[in-house]
Design a protein around this nucleic acid. Structure first.
Lengths: 139, 139
DNA sequence: CTCTAAATGCAATACTGCTGCAAAAATAGG
DNA sequence: CCTATTTTTGCAGCAGTATTGCATTTAGAG
């Protein structure tokens, strides 16, 4: 497994185990939001379902991945930059294509500020846009 | 049960049944996003789980309620205005308080336009803001 | 190499959401 | 008001998702 993966695990003070290396490797290579089911389809013959669940929760806790919610359920995507256990960046834009079903994190977009009612304080913002992605709107 | 509830059901060409009256009444009185589990906790002794699921789906189809997604799962909230079976407004801002756990629909806010990458087409937009609500940020 | 704490696999369990079918209830028409 | 028709409900059962407890195995520190 790649050195980069091992380094990332070490940075977050996680033991480098086979399941974690593989899971992180898949996130890096697929570059889209993945569900537990997606991971199980790839890793299920080598690792227990429960281990994959626990790996995802560990990665969540450490800020390696973040949750992505659409109307079909929970997925997970890599946190590209500044996220860590105590310092998450609180601004995620996700796009789900209703045609191909892929959900992606739009990294370079930011959520415009919203004027909240008096007394409300925002800590985290998640914007989910559903529609057609570039490849699917060609057809 | 209140006349307003019955009228609402009739407007959407739904038979006025006990489960629908009660469910709609709860949405009106609680005025926050509710999960199936919330409803089951209140109605579960009088109506079957499945009936509650079907009631929710019927209300969804008719545009009486809409889905709300937060990090914990799916909830439902009343559509205040212009939604109907064929004319939904696709622009929802929801606020979840991390302190009291309540999720609310911020009716008068709209999602600011976002510049999507080339070729992307938006059909529906959901903005979830998490933080502290007015009552919880006082303390 | 050994020891210890962390991670894993397995079994069991709970929760969430759906389907098919028979019984019950709601409305339209007389 | 009564009946016929259509819709809705309850029940049983199923599938997918997610969690916990515990015994075993493994990673990494010394």
């Amino acid at each position: 497994m790649e050195q980069h993966v091992i380094d990332t695990l070490k940075e977050h003070k996680l033991r480098t185990t086979s399941c974690r290396e593989n899971t992180l490797g898949i996130f890096l290579s697929r570059d889209m939001a993945l569900s537990h089911g997606d991971l199980e389809a790839t890793l299920g013959d080598r690792f227990d379902r429960v281990t994959i669940y626990r790996t995802l929760r560990t990665f969540l806790d450490k800020g390696i991945i973040h949750k992505v919610l659409d109307d079909e359920g929970v997925r997970y995507a890599l946190c590209r930059d500044s996220c860590s256990e105590h310092n998450h960046h609180h601004d995620h834009v996700h796009f789900k294509c209703n045609e191909c079903g892929q959900t992606n994190c739009l990294e370079n977009l930011h959520v415009p500020a919203v004027q909240l009612p008096k007394g409300y304080q925002a800590r985290e913002v998640n914007l989910l846009i559903q529609g057609l992605c570039a490849s699917c709107s060609d057809n």
